[in-house]
Amino acid sequence: MGLLQYFRQEKPKKGSAKLAKDRLQIIVAHEHSSAAKPAYLPEMQKEIVAVIRKYMEISSNDVKCEFTDKGDEDMSVLEVNVALPKQHTPY
C-alpha cells in the first residue's frame, strides 16, 4: 500500500457504543410495550380457553388476547381472537 493511501485510509471505528445503543433500543421498546399490558392478561387467556373447552375442542394456541393502549384516544382495546377448528363451524 502506498504511503499516500495509508494516510488517506479511514481508521475503522472499533467502539462498542453503537452496539450498546442498538441493544438498549430493542430492550427499552420491548419493555415499554409489555409494561402497557395488564398483568392479568395471561391468566385471563387461560380462563377463556377453559370456558371454550367446555363446549368444543380447541388448543390453547387458538386463543389470542391482545391488549392495545390507544395513546391519543381515551381508551384501551382488548381484542380476543378465537380460531375454531372447521368441524365446529355452525351450519
Binding site: 471505528k13 472499533k14 467502539g15 462498542s16 457504543a17 453503537k18 450498546a20 445503543k21 438498549l24 433500543q25 427499552v28
Partner: peptide, 16 residues
C-alpha cells in the same frame, strides 16, 4: 471514551 465510540454519548442517552 465517547469520542472513541467506547461509551454512549449524551445524544444516544437522550434518544433512548
Amino acid at each position: 471514551r465517547v469520542e472513541k465510540e467506547e461509551m454512549l454519548s449524551i445524544d444516544d442517552i437522550d434518544d433512548l
